[in-house]
Design a protein around this nucleic acid. Structure first.
Length: 193
DNA sequence: CTGTTGATCTGCT
DNA sequence: GCAGATCAACAGT
């Protein structure tokens, strides 16, 4: 599997969100690999996106969104949950990131089950805070380079046809509801597979 | 400094 | 369907 180069992330945040579907999110802990196929993403942009963390300008928490593309933006929310984003933006914007909302478990099932303290595989990584728990992603991965084989990176995966991508309003968002920036692989894609 | 709200999930009702 | 866990940003005092 080839690691995805930085140039992949130097495009419009919304396009990168779509392109990330089907790619593999890989977490390396010591020599062990834990990974999954990215099946749902959301785009968060900048001044034109009131729902984005970066909308109000740079803060200590969101500064990764203004930094180099192809890096991880990890944030803590609701007092107990972490979520992962891949920093991605075109030259037109100073900030932007793609939230990874769901993956399909691939390698390291045992580890994930242990992390989540459950035996229901379908409930392992089907939410943004669930997948970070399964892959043991925390603030320690803040700013990690996703374009190199490091503790956290993204590689090539399966090919997704453009027509099998579904768009919806982003989940749990009240602002900018007209932006259909939640992207997922149609369930039919997996049942046919 | 204080109170509210949130890109959430779990467990109970 | 709702409370609880309880951190960071923000608006208001």
């Amino acid at each position: 599997m080839k690691v995805i180069p930085r140039s992949f992330y130097e495009k419009d945040t919304v396009d990168v969100a779509k392109n990330l579907l089907g790619k593999i999110l890989v977490r390396r802990i010591n020599e062990m690999l834990v990974s999954g196929i990215i099946s749902e993403t959301e785009a968060y942009r900048y001044k034109d996106d009131p729902a984005s963390h970066s909308f109000g300008g740079m803060t200590e928490r969101n500064k990764a969104m203004f930094g180099e593309v192809g890096r991880a933006y990890v944030y803590f929310t609701y007092g107990m949950h972490y979520c992962v984003n891949a920093v991605a933006k075109s030259e037109k914007y100073d900030a932007g990131a793609v939230l990874i909302r769901a993956i399909v478990p691939k390698d390291g099932l045992d580890f994930m089950l242990k992390q989540r303290k459950t035996d229901v595989i379908s409930n392992l990584t089907n939410g943004p805070a669930k997948l970070t728990q399964s892959l043991k992603i925390t603030k320690a991965q803040y700013g990690e380079d996703l374009t190199k084989v490091s503790g956290l990176y993204i590689t090539d995966g399966i090919n997704i046809k453009r027509s099998t991508i579904e768009s919806r309003p982003r989940i749990g968002i009240k602002k900018a509801v007209d932006n259909l920036w939640n992207f997922s692989i149609s369930k039919n894609y997996f049942t046919d597979y």
